[in-house]
Design a protein around this nucleic acid. Structure first.
Length: 850
RNA sequence: GCCCCCGUGGCGGAAUCGGUAGACGCGGCAGACUCAAAAUCUGUUGCCUUCACGGGCGUGCUGGUUCAAGUCCGGCCGGGGGCACCA
């Protein structure tokens, strides 16, 4: 019996697709378009199982869409700037450029061996000068539009990677790449004004119906819109006349018992310059920084400045002004009024410094006289009390009343605040896109002239000393000012690599265009119809890309506001972990052998302790290289595994047994096709059929309908199950006519086409076709064959299943009722009593109520 | 602490609208083929009970709505994720 030779078949079809440019996408077509994209990879050198899963899913969609008659764009490129290249340069002495392009070459071959339906003619790497030159052009546009600025700010400094980070890149106080505790530093840095789109980015989420709700929620929380009132307190014994605060609870103004300033507040700094004790307090607050332990202990501390603030509604009511460690300069105005009864932090603070705690919002149905605050602030709804003109109002009305009065008095203004901060984009690293500006002593910051772009990275840099290699380069930064012609220096910071990935999907629409964007091509392809990637980018890449798209639209490059109409976030690939003994060294899966219900080190009797399934990682050694699976079983097996069993959004566990099962199915399909004798030639007309023929035809068309529906909804695991069901039906079918068997087999091949494309081509050829499955149209389900004429429905007595009946699909209710009641099991359950009621749900169930 | 999601056989999971729970796969068991093994094929596989027919139980726990609940509602328990002094 001939076995399917995956290796030979896969190499062969890959070269056929390549030679015929099967997957090359045209930028104009009479067909409807579909842009399918997976998040492009960082060229680490090797593809891992996560890549295999991600790109398989995208490939299935791309091939499915193509079969359904869409003009499909499915490109690939490389997110190629970034620190690993510099680290490799330091460790191995290889230039980041060489290292990166060698990795790209290796990974390209591995990706190609997966048989992806990609238009490789559009490939580029973000470190290609041709790409980053256009990015610099976009920067100049943004600069002109006022979307870029340079400012001194408290920023996150990663001491290991020796660069600053954006807020989104600090996870639990640590750098997203290095894992190092982030320090706060005051530095002059470049920012993109993402906050000017805050409201738009927030509201745009409502329209993204094909995004996971989870991601939209994470972005909503990250943008963090809150409505409140900004108003001022007059000060006495102070160097400034008043202090402005922001509050979302102005209704609690009569419960105020103190004012608190951030340690970084300008007034604090002014006071500290004359008050050494305060200066020391501020210094103590600063040392804590964002370090983990400080946040966890989170003790509220304050310093009484001696200044008094006058209550805005009572000239005789003075509040103490503190500097407090829990007030953030970066949010609101950097100053608050504290209302201990209705804010937990304020309450902790007030208890410590023995400040009054006066409840002013009383829960409905509670007596204001007996309502007291213990250790917990009351933050729920209720009616105002102890609040003069606000007494009796609900919280919302009271907020409005306070706002109205303070606005009328010219002391306050309703405002909206966002948690979102501007995107810090400068990095003190070499291997990134140079920021195209020049610093001139007399003209200040001057953008590089368009005709002088690109600002190209120098090749001759040294990595044998700490710091930014660009800044340390002896000559590169020296240039002349475009404005005055005098001596000037180049900016030595480069862009955050998230800038590179914020518009690559637009560049794919015409990756050879002279302008950053070929408007016509972008107009045709954008937005991406289906984007696929990891959920870890929910508030990083996916937020930045939404901002960039808006900024590019504003600059006239694009007509769309949202880059990704559909988003899918796939789960991770996991594997069991192995250790030599409990707590011992980690072992690679290939070092472990399973037999007799136990696990042992390969070739020995030394037992291995098996740990839980975790995300594949080098540190746990629980990795399987896709390459080894492709070598052993072929790409179709790994693809089939990635689509089977586990829903795509969940984590999938890689198992050897599962992979072998997939391989067996590949062989089974091949046998089903090649061991069938006496098939009529392709294109034979289907006769009218009955009996077993009709049953197989029904199974075939039910499979078409089900797989079509499941693939459309990205339910790959269910589509896989439907194909198994069809294979089972084919295997079980007895003496069916040749035409019927051919239809079933051809359908099977077309249905697996997007998932196991090489096997499909081989089978298609074996069935006598001269065409490619990759070019074939998706099969059409005949609705008359999808639904059968007779159906089986359950019969319940008092909600308990007692039997089932077979009835014509369109049977009259009375007939259904009587055949249900005629069942022995029903009569037994009724114990001779007449039924009180019989509920017939057509096509579903009969329930007899006794 | 706040917000969100998820709990179904030995395992991954299916059940789209409240209507026959466990499709499909993995694993297990039994058999066929074989000198034997691999491969392949067939049957079987939620739990308890029964010689059998059958009966009982069953979707984390608990209460409710309904003719009918894995699905809807309330309370709890467990797991995962996001944010974390955001005023």
């Amino acid at each position: 019996m001939a076995r399917y030779n995956a290796k030979e078949s896969e190499t062969r079809w890959q070269s056929v697709w390549s030679a015929r440019e099967t997957f090359r996408a045209a930028n104009e077509s009479a067909l409807p378009k579909s842009y399918v994209l997976e998040m492009f990879p960082y060229p680490s050198g090797r593809i891992h199982m996560g890549h295999a899963r991600n790109y398989t899913m995208g490939d299935v969609i791309a091939r499915f869409k193509r079969a359904q008659g869409f003009n499909v764009l499915h490109p690939m490129g490389w997110d190629a700037f970034g620190l690993p290249a510099e680290n490799a340069a330091r460790e191995k002495g290889v230039h980041p450029r060489e290292w990166t392009y060698a990795n790209i070459a290796a990974m390209r071959e591995e990706l190609k061996s997966l048989g992806l339906a990609i238009d490789w003619s559009r490939e580029f790497a973000t470190c290609d000068p041709a790409y980053y030159a256009r990015q610099q052009r976009l920067f100049l546009d943004f600069f002109r539009m006022g979307l870029v600025y340079r400012a001194e700010a408290d920023v996150n400094w990663d001491p290991v990677d020796e660069t600053v980070l954006a807020n989104e890149q600090v996870i639990e106080g640590r750098g997203w790449r290095s894992g190092a505790l982030v320090e706060r530093r005051k530095l002059s840095q470049w920012f993109f004004k993402i906050t000017s789109f805050a409201d738009d980015l927030l509201h745009g989420l409502d329209q993204l119906e094909r995004w996971p709700e989870k991601v939209r929620l994470m972005q909503r929380n990250w943008i963090g819109r809150s409505e409140g009132l900004r108003f001022s307190f007059d000060l006495t014994k102070a160097p400034v006349p008043s202090i402005e605060v922001f509050s979302t609870r102005p209704d609690t103004i009569f419960g105020a018992s103190f004012i608190a300033l951030s340690p970084e507040h300008p007034l604090t700094e002014q006071l500290a310059s004359k008050d050494p004790k305060l200066a020391q307090f501020v210094a103590e607050c600063r040392t804590g920084g964002t370090a983990e332990e400080t946040i966890e202990t989170a003790e509220k501390r304050g310093y009484d400045t001696g200044i008094k603030a006058r209550h805005p509604f009572d000239a005789n009511w003075d509040l103490p002004v503190y500097v407090a460690n829990f007030v953030l300069m970066a949010y609101g105005t950097g100053a608050i009024f504290g209302c201990p009864a209705h804010d937990q932090r304020d309450l902790d603070f007030a208890r410590k410094y023995r400040l009054p705690v006066l409840p002013v919002v009383i829960p409905e149905g509670t007596d204001p006289k007996t309502f007291a605050i213990g250790d917990e602030a009351y933050v729920g709804p209720g009616r105002l009390a102890n609040s003069r003109f606000l007494d009796g109002l609900d919280v919302e009305s009271a907020k409005a009343e306070v706002a109205k009065r303070l606005e009328a008095a010219g002391k306050g203004q309703r405002t909206v605040h966002y948690r979102l901060r501007d995107w810090l984009v400068s990095r003190q690293r070499y291997w990134g896109c140079p920021i195209p500006v020049i610093h001139c002593a007399s003209c200040g910051i001057v953008p590089v002239a368009v005709e002088n772009l690109p600002v190209v990275l120098p090749d001759d840099v040294r990595f044998d000393q700490p710091g930014n290699p660009l800044a340390l380069h002896p000559t590169w930064k020296h240039t002349s000012c475009p404005k005055c012609g005098g001596r000037a220096t180049r900016e030595t910071d480069t862009f955050d690599t998230f800038v590179d990935s914020s518009w690559y999907f637009v560049r794919f629409t015409d990756s050879h265009a002279d302008d950053p964007v070929n408007r016509a091509a972008a107009q045709y392809w954008m937005p991406v119809d289906q984007y696929i990637g990891g959920v870890e980018h929910a508030v990083l890449h996916l937020l930045y890309a939404r901002f960039f798209t808006r900024a590019m639209a504003k600059a006239g490059h694009l007509a769309v506001q949202e880059p990704f109409a559909g988003l899918f976030t796939q789960g991770m690939v996991c594997h069991e972990t192995y250790r030599a003994v409990d707590g011992g060294d980690w072992l690679l899966p290939e070092e472990v052998e399973k037999r007799d219900g136990g696990a042992f080190q390969r070739g020995t009797d030394i037992p291995v302790s098996v740990g839980p399934s975790e995300k594949m990682s080098k540190s746990r050694k629980n990795v399987i290289a896709p390459e080894t699976i492709i070598d052993a079983f072929g790409a179709d097996t790994i693809r089939w595994f990635m689509l089977s069993d586990t829903p795509p959004e969940r984590d999938i566990e890689w198992t050897q047994e599962g992979a072998e099962g997939c391989w067996r199915f590949v062989q089974r399909i091949y046998r089903l096709i090649t061991e069938t004798e006496d098939l009529p030639p392709a294109g034979t007309k289907m006769p009218e059929v009955t009996g077993v023929d009709l049953e197989l035809r029904r199974a075939t068309h039910r499979a078409i309908a089900a797989v079509t529906e499941d693939l459309s909804a990205l339910r790959f695991n269910r589509a896989v199950a439907q194909i198994y069901t069809l294979a089972n039906a084919l295997g079980a079918a007895g003496a069916v006519s040749g035409a019927v068997r051919r239809e079933a087999l051809e359908t099977m091949v077309l249905l697996i086409g997007p998932m196991m494309p090489h096997l499909a081509e081989t089978c298609w050829e074996a069935l006598g076709h001269k065409t490619l499955v990759a070019m074939a149209r998706w099969p059409h389900a005949d609705p008359r064959l999808v639904k059968s004429d007779t159906i089986t429905i359950g019969v319940q007595v008092n909600g308990k299943l007692r039997g089932e009946i077979q009835i014509p699909r369109e049977a009259e209710e009375e007939i259904v009722k009587s055949s249900a009641l005629a069942l022995d099991s029903v009569q037994r359950a009724l114990e001779g009593k007449p039924p009180r009621r019989v509920i017939v749900v057509p096509g579903r169930i009969v329930n007899v109520v006794a």
